[in-house]
Design a protein around this nucleic acid. Structure first.
Lengths: 200, 200
DNA sequence: TGTTTACGATACGCTTGCGTATCGGAACAC
DNA sequence: GTGTTCCGATACGCAAGCGTATCGTAAACA
C-alpha cells in the first residue's frame, strides 16, 4: 500500500490545500448553505474538475476542511480553578471575538441539523476538543478539593459553555471579559467545595 | 384611515393564514434557507402572485409568520424558586422535545447571522418572551429572599437558558427532565441566598 | 521519448427558483 | 349591471449552480 505509486502526474498537494482554505474562507463569509462548488474552485484558483476528482459532494469537502482548522486546545494549569477557568474562557472569547465566527458557527449549526455527517464532524472536532480541555480542568479542580467531589463534570461543562453560546447565537448579550469573570464566579459558587468562599 | 375601503374584491384572510402556516411548516421541515416562495405557494394552495401581492421577499413573510407562533409564556407561581424554575424548564423541554424544532431553530439561528431583520424578530419574539418570564421568576425569588440579593438576573437567565440551548444545537447532550432538575439545583447553589441549603 | 494522469479553463445541458405577466373567474362597492 | 381588485393557475425569460466533458499543457515514471 505505502509503496504503491500510480503512474502519471500526481495530485497537487498545493491545490488540495488551496481548495480547503477557500472552502473555509467562504463558509466564514457567506455561510455553509451559500457556499458553492463553483465558488470554492474560483476562490482557490483551480478548475471545477479538480474538486470533483477529490470529493463527490460539498459535504465531504467541508468535513475535511473542518479537520484542518480544528486544533487541540491546550489545557491551562495556573494552579487554581479560578485561573484555569478564566484561561478557558479566554479561549472561548478568542473564538467568539472574531466577527467571521458568527456566520461560520451558525451556518454549521444549521448544517448539523440536516447532515449527520456534519454533525459528527463538528462534535468530534470543535466540541470534543473544547469539552476535553474543560473537563480536564474541572476534574483536576475536583481532585484538588477546590470543587465539590460530587460535581457532575458534564453538567458543569455545559453550564460554563452554554451561556456564551446562547448569547452569541441567540440573545446577543455581552460576550466579553467582564461576563467571563461573572460566569466563572457563578461556576465556582455552583460547584465550589463547601466552605470555600468565592473571592469578591 | 380606519374607515377607508378599497374598491374591488378584498384580500382573502384565509389565504393569508394558509400562506403563513405553510411557511412555518416548511421551515420546520427543510430549514429556513431551503424554503422557497414557490414551495410556500404550493403548500398553501395559492398562486405565487398572491404571495408577491403581500410580501416583497421571503424575509418579511417569514417575520410575519414568526409573529404568529410566538406566544406569551405564562409566568409560573408555585410558591418556591425551585418549583417556578422547574416549571420554566418544562416549558423549554416542551419546545426542545418537538423533533421539528431542531431544523426550525437552527435554520433561524443561521438566518439571524445574515439578516438583521430576522435577528430582531427572533430576539423581540421568542427570546424576549422567554427571558421576560424567567426574569420575573428570578426577581420574585430575589424579593422573597430565596436568591441572593446581588443576583445578576441577566447572567442567571443565561446560565439557566444556555446549557440546553448548547446541548440541543451543538453537543447533543441530554435535554430531559433529569438534566432539568440537575440544572435547577446548580442554579440554586449558584444564586441561592447564603444559608439556604439546596434539598437533596 | 512515450505513456499516463492531473492541471486550469471552459463549454455544455440540466434543473431550480426567481419575479413578472397574463388568463378567466370570483367577490366586493356602487 | 359596471368597475375594480383579488383569486388560483400557469407561462415566461432570467440567473445560478449542478455535474460532466473536453480542451491543450504540465509533471511524473519507464
Amino acid at each position: 500500500m505505502a509503496g504503491t505509486r500510480r503512474p502519471g502526474r500526481p495530485r497537487s498537494e498545493e491545490a488540495h490545500g488551496a481548495i480547503l482554505s477557500a472552502a473555509i474562507d467562504l463558509i466564514r463569509e457567506v455561510g455553509y448553505d451559500a457556499v458553492t462548488m463553483e465558488g470554492i474552485a474560483a476562490r482557490a484558483g483551480v478548475g471545477k474538475a479538480t474538486l470533483y476528482r477529490r470529493w463527490k459532494e460539498k459535504e465531504t469537502l467541508v468535513i475535511e476542511a473542518l479537520g484542518r482548522i480544528i486544533r487541540a486546545i491546550p489545557v491551562p494549569d495556573t494552579g487554581s480553578a479560578r485561573g484555569d477557568l478564566m484561561a478557558m474562557m479566554r479561549v472561548a472569547l478568542g473564538m467568539y471575538g472574531d466577527p467571521a465566527s458568527h456566520v461560520l458557527l451558525s451556518g454549521l449549526v444549521a448544517a448539523m441539523a440536516r447532515s449527520p455527517a456534519i454533525a459528527h464532524a463538528m462534535r468530534a472536532g470543535f466540541d470534543r476538543a473544547w469539552r476535553q480541555a474543560l473537563g480536564q480542568v474541572l476534574r483536576r479542580a475536583i481532585d484538588r478539593g477546590e470543587l465539590r467531589a460530587d460535581t457532575e463534570v458534564e453538567m458543569a461543562t455545559d453550564v460554563i459553555s452554554g451561556p456564551f453560546f446562547y448569547r452569541y447565537l441567540m440573545s446577543g448579550g455581552p460576550v466579553d471579559e467582564r461576563s467571563a469573570r461573572e460566569l466563572v464566579e457563578v461556576a465556582l459558587r455552583a460547584f465550589g467545595a463547601s466552605g470555600d468562599e468565592p473571592s469578591q
